[in-house]
């Protein structure tokens, strides 16, 4: 009798936490709905009530209640609908372009602005340091005036 009780207690200790954990939702519906797209209406899942969106919502709900992780749900959806079902494209393959191009634009833009600022600053310093050029005509008139003054003496 005692032996049987021990077995039952051990089984309960092993099985109950495992099943409780398995059924525990790993993410919220509102969270994942912003990360998925309705495949037929090209809008985010949380903003769509198209039949395809409702089907995906029901699928996500079922899998969430079954304890799937967000990534598992997304992987399953990508398998049936393709990567377009994800609101943010994967940072690999052709989806990489969406991540790399804005970064390249920002970095390139910053480099251009910094470099142009350096060039303009250097040019201004060079101009400030250079001796002022004298108009040759004015120079001749000054020389003439000085000579005239010398003749007067």
């Amino acid at each position: 009798m005692i032996r049987r009780c021990i077995i039952v207690v051990v089984l309960l200790l092993v099985l109950v936490p495992a099943t409780a954990f398995a059924a525990q939702p790993q993410f919220s519906m509102s969270e994942i709905e912003t990360e998925l797209m309705c495949p037929t209406c090209q809008s985010r899942l949380d903003l769509s009530h198209a039949p395809a969106a409702e089907q995906i919502r029901a699928f996500v709900q079922r899998k969430r209640e079954a304890g799937w992780t967000k990534q598992q749900v997304k992987d399953a959806l990508v398998q049936d609908f393709g990567p377009a079902v994800l609101a943010a494209p994967p940072a690999s393959g052709s989806g990489l372009v969406v991540w790399v191009v804005p970064a390249a634009l920002v970095i390139g833009g910053v480099v251009v602005v910094v470099a142009l600022t350096l060039i303009w600053r250097r040019r201004r310093e060079t101009v400030a340091a250079a001796p002022a050029a004298i108009d040759p005509a004015l120079d001749d008139r000054v020389d003439e005036a000085l000579r005239a003054l010398g003749d007067d003496d």
């Binding site: 634009l105 390139g108 480099v111 251009v112």
Partner: peptide, 13 residues
């Protein structure tokens, strides 16, 4: 550097 950065921006665009 400017030439390279402009090239990168143009490529991205």
């Amino acid at each position: 550097l400017v030439v390279i950065a402009v090239a990168v921006v143009l490529l991205a665009l």
